[in-house]
Design a protein around this nucleic acid. Sequence first.
DNA 1: ATAGGGCGTCGAAGCGCTTCGACTGCTTTC
DNA 2: GAAAGCAGTCGAAGCGCTTCGACGCCCTAT
Lengths: 337, 337
Amino acid sequence: MVTLAEVARHAGVSASTVSYVLSGKRSISTTTRQRVEESIRKLGYHPNAGARALASSKSNIIALMIPLRTDMYVPVMMEIAIAVAAGARTHGYDILLLTGEEGPDAVRRVTGSGLADAMILMDVELDDERLPLLRGTDQPSVLIGLPADTEGLTCVDLDFRATGALCVEHLAELGHRDIAVIGEAAAVYERHTGFAERTLDGLRTRARELGLRLLHRPCDGGYDAMAVTLARVFDERPGTTGFVVQNEAAVEPLLALLRQQGRAVPEDVSVVAVCPDQVATQASVRLTSVAVPAQEMGRRAVEHLVAKLEGRGSDEVVLLAPELTVRASSGPAPARP
Amino acid sequence: MVTLAEVARHAGVSASTVSYVLSGKRSISTTTRQRVEESIRKLGYHPNAGARALASSKSNIIALMIPLRTDMYVPVMMEIAIAVAAGARTHGYDILLLTGEEGPDAVRRVTGSGLADAMILMDVELDDERLPLLRGTDQPSVLIGLPADTEGLTCVDLDFRATGALCVEHLAELGHRDIAVIGEAAAVYERHTGFAERTLDGLRTRARELGLRLLHRPCDGGYDAMAVTLARVFDERPGTTGFVVQNEAAVEPLLALLRQQGRAVPEDVSVVAVCPDQVATQASVRLTSVAVPAQEMGRRAVEHLVAKLEGRGSDEVVLLAPELTVRASSGPAPARP
DNA sequence: ATAGGGCGTCGAAGCGCTTCGACTGCTTTC
DNA sequence: GAAAGCAGTCGAAGCGCTTCGACGCCCTAT
């Protein structure tokens, strides 16, 4: 293991000079710098992370807390995580992966031990028990998701309320009056995950404003669950012609079941999904959808966090504006009898 | 930030005593231990990770290198990652998330800087450029996947060759003679990802032994790609009655297209999938499948790595035996005309 | 000429922890 | 009854780096 001291000896300078070459915190003559850089390359030197962390009280690590649950659409999480990791690297940070399992203890452990300089939390609940801890520390953090009280916090999220509104508007414009919402699994609502409730709120509010009828049903995803849910929907509201789906695991089952029942999409029934673009374009019908911009969210979270770490930036709630892309699954409502 | 020295003062002992209480590396009297533990709790002490790493040359961190590509089934990766993270925690390790993007440089960086004590590599290619680096260091590592040359490496993977054989055997027993294999995206084969090629090898070898005809076609996944692929298959081998699918993104499209073409599953055509159980049970037809035991693989990888870190355990290739679960998508081949 | 000020470099003091050797009282052992 | 061993504790020496103050040098402004 090559140390800074060895590099210094090899280059014929003092250790501090090497350190300043590395950090750029003091000016170094061109000749010296080149000599040092040469030595570093020749010896294959890598600064020791622990020593660095100890001396500078900075680890250059960002902790990412990712939910462990599997009742939520995993690819989105994965995409965010990868975007976060890639983004962090461009700023010289590495990612420490924490699973939600440990809960608040993980926050304590990480902030207490100086393992990480900052954290990003995913899958934040409306009244998340990790939040008081975050407020009580001076370690920067960014949430992906939106809790009920954002005081003193920085959050990045899709504007799900606007997303809900947008879906309703689109269907309303096409003349649909009776809309069914196929939501996430019931458990998601039960633990008060913000995005699900906010979408619903946006849907309901706009539906009321536009005078539409709205029926919301959570759904576990998969064919069997979807079949049951769909039967109930048509039972209760036979005139339903518009669907909003916010549950990737229910998208394909829904399309298949509609087909099976002889309801054509989009001629008889329109479907708008809230899902990543990839899902929308790979489905059996190219879906009109509002994209969940996972990459963008990950990227933005890192940017804000780095800004905070560098002393720039402040607490802020960033809501990304939803964009609805019209594809083949939505069209004018059928003429009513 | 509470330090070890403060705890020592508070408890009226020396710093080294506190350290030994924490590590258990020397015997401590019960009364002293309790006093120290009390102080630790009262002061809310957390050992500083950097200092620890520096003094002990151990970071208690395992690096996990995860592919960045999105042309492979992501949930499996995610599931492995989460299993690894959870498993690592039970042994006192944290996970550092590296994306494949950096390639071999990441390996150099991590081993050189002492950021992590060990690594787990996912998505290993047959002739992976990271392997020489791993062999050239004394840092323990485990691969999830199987390269061409496993000399000096520890690998954990599903036995994909046996998996392929198993699928063929199942279809053969049911009387199918003409089998089509819907594989991963062409890019996966082009970069010589081991699991894809080994599955194919298993399929081909067993098919030859049993005298079956086998047609392999890579497929990008999604409806359009699947439609093209399927058309070609039936064009070339109209008598195909058995399908093996190793591409989760192609499963549902395949089922939908078969249905659309009036081919009933499993009456006219049998389908065997290689995919996580969740996909198999949530598909529109409950699929006969060989499960990809993602969790198990993650868990095993950690176990082996920890064993190595503790001086137990040695280089070894662990191939998990595949298990085929018969569900509703496979049945006797139709009587031939 | 001389004070002032950058610039470039060095030495030394930590950062908070682990770990080795040494020491003190005991208890065992023959 | 002396030698040996052990449990329990302490002090001190680092681990490899950052960073502060100091110093010498040369250039500029007075």
